[in-house]
Design a protein around this nucleic acid. Structure first.
Lengths: 187, 187
DNA sequence: TGCATTTTTTATCATTTGTAAAATTTTAGA
DNA sequence: TCTAAAATTTTACAAATGATAAAAAATGCA
């Protein structure tokens, strides 16, 4: 997905503001397996996914726990770094070779205080991420793993084909064995 | 908590901007049990809690599921109404008599496009709510009910004394019987 | 193609959690 | 203070989930 589409989906900017913003964005490429962001590190950049998929996970006593998948058009950001300049909890691993748009946070912050349109773009960005996060929280609290798996099939079937089931199981908060039982039942 | 403190905790506004914003805010009072926001309704106002506590819940097949508690200084908002002008999933019930600050969303939106400081205030507001929501999601995904109960005791012990355990159990995602078992173990 | 490795499924057993009902404690109002 | 209602805890039993191990299937690479 092209950067213009990605930016516009968040909030339509007038041309001069959009130019200021895109001027601060670079295109970068990394291979499958690369770690774009690291847990326990204050990150300085945010990324938009042009091509490829990624996962966010944290390490726990029982191993890695995957809690997010990012696909084309999604934003990759350590929210604690972005909002509070503190270490984040996520490591972002590329599940495929990826092309990304890179945006430096401090450049963005400079634009926020200078340009009201970009400030409102940043507001909409945070608001939309907030809504997505809240929906994930609600789904997690209200729905069974079975229901959430069915929604995953319905909403993002293409992801399921590209991501291995151990990550899906972790994302659903169940063991791989339980996910297998669910899949067996649905046949 | 006074409105000035609440606004400043989000983002410090220069005086003219702060005056514009506070001019749009009214103080209102409601009794325990009143439903401030309703699920499946597009809400028009957001609220800041001056005094009292509230809970957010949704109805499900198995009954009400509590997923948030609000206390003095917190913001009460139907995020889907606020961000997307769509029906929300939460009903907000006052658990005590409350004093609230009421802010009309469309008045706020008018200020966002006119005043860059208020736009950045709105950005910080969304960012901070986002971080809190993400932390709740992470806690829910990574920690056991026992751990989350212990954190609740540590972080907001005053809430535990003011909220009945059936709501706490629902919030933790377990049955009241399970919570009782946890509490018995901790003695 | 064929082999080695990784991923997924299946089976068994132990543990945890939920359901339902009863017992106990706390709370609120007359 | 007393009583009725509400909230909380306890118990017994059933159902769901996890851990572990092993088999089956899929994948990647020479």
């Amino acid at each position: 997905m092209e950067i213009n589409t990605i930016l516009d989906r968040i909030y339509a900017l007038p041309m001069p503001s959009k130019e200021s913003l895109t001027k601060a964005i670079d295109e970068v490429e990394y291979s499958k397996g690369y770690r774009l962001l690291n847990a326990d590190k204050v990150e300085r950049n945010i990324y938009f996914i042009k091509k490829g998929i990624v996962r966010a996970y944290t390490d726990s006593a029982e191993g890695e726990i995957t809690f997010w998948f990012g696909k084309e058009g999604d934003t990759v950001v350590s929210m604690r770094s972005y909002v509070a300049s503190q270490k984040g909890y996520e490591t972002i691993e590329l599940l495929e070779d990826c092309v990304l748009y890179e945006l430096n946070m401090s450049a963005l912050n400079n634009l926020f205080v200078k340009d009201i349109h970009i400030a409102n773009w940043g507001r909409k960005f945070a608001e939309q991420e907030l809504l997505k996060t809240e929906e994930r929280l609600i789904a997690r609290q209200f729905k069974t793993a079975l229901e959430r798996y069915c929604e995953l099939i319905k909403n993002t079937p293409e992801l399921l084909l590209r991501i291995q089931l151990s990550h899906i199981a972790s994302y659903l908060g169940i063991t791989q064995v339980s996910l297998s039982r669910i899949r067996a039942k649905l046949k």
